[in-house]
Nucleic acid binder design. Structure first.
Lengths: 108, 108
DNA sequence: CGGTATCCTGCAGGATACTG
DNA sequence: CAGTATCCTGCAGGATACCG
């Protein structure tokens, strides 16, 4: 029937909306993998240790809907699909890098 | 019986270890609330909209174990407990602020 | 290659009542 | 005030098989 998103009138605070976008178990790893260059689907699956096909698809879809990445499909055989960071997504680069550095300094 | 943490020999990548610490639904909100000054328990509960007692306790405990916040109890009646950011926690300030700003700029 | 489609499970997180 | 102690539920995330 109605497959539209249910607009809950919650006013989640900003930080929680952000976590909806990049708080998933794999989102940051995916962004991190896309920082140096655009990647193909299987490439991401290989680069990111432990991720499942299902989750990679889900997170990529979510991030695409949220304007973090772009998906470009080429009608080749076999199919080729490239994922890339948008400008919006690239703005997250330094932040994720800072987080990463913080982790290196303080974890373990 | 054995209540010690089970040390899984997984080598989670850094970003995921970081999410274990500050990826919870409320962690960042708590840190954010502690940035300006130390806070008492009930104060945090009041300031952070929607959080439950149980979750506030859990996240605070987790963050204490991870050296993000300190807990100071005073033997008053009724009890007084103050939570404060550690140096390690304070290093997250600018990062969370950047994230917050990113959210302001790009969400909605 | 780049995905769907299913089935399944644990645990994050909520609600509520009680305590020193 | 600052928490415990329980009970409960949804859904994030995993595993596996199949498709164009």
């Amino acid at each position: 029937m109605n497959k539209e998103k249910i607009e809950k009138p919650e006013n989640k605070c900003e930080l929680q909306k952000i976590l909806d976008i990049i708080g998933g178990k794999w989102s940051m790893s995916i962004i991190y993998a896309l920082i140096p260059e655009k990647r193909r689907f299987k490439e991401l699956e290989r680069i990111i240790p432990g991720i499942s096909t299902r989750m990679l698809v889900k997170e990529l879809k979510n991030m695409e809907e949220n304007g973090i990445v772009t998906r470009t499909a080429f009608a080749t055989v076999p199919p080729t699909v490239e994922y890339n960071l948008t400008a919006k997504g690239k703005k997250l680069d330094p932040i994720i890098n800072d987080l990463y550095q913080w982790g290196l300094e303080y974890i373990n």
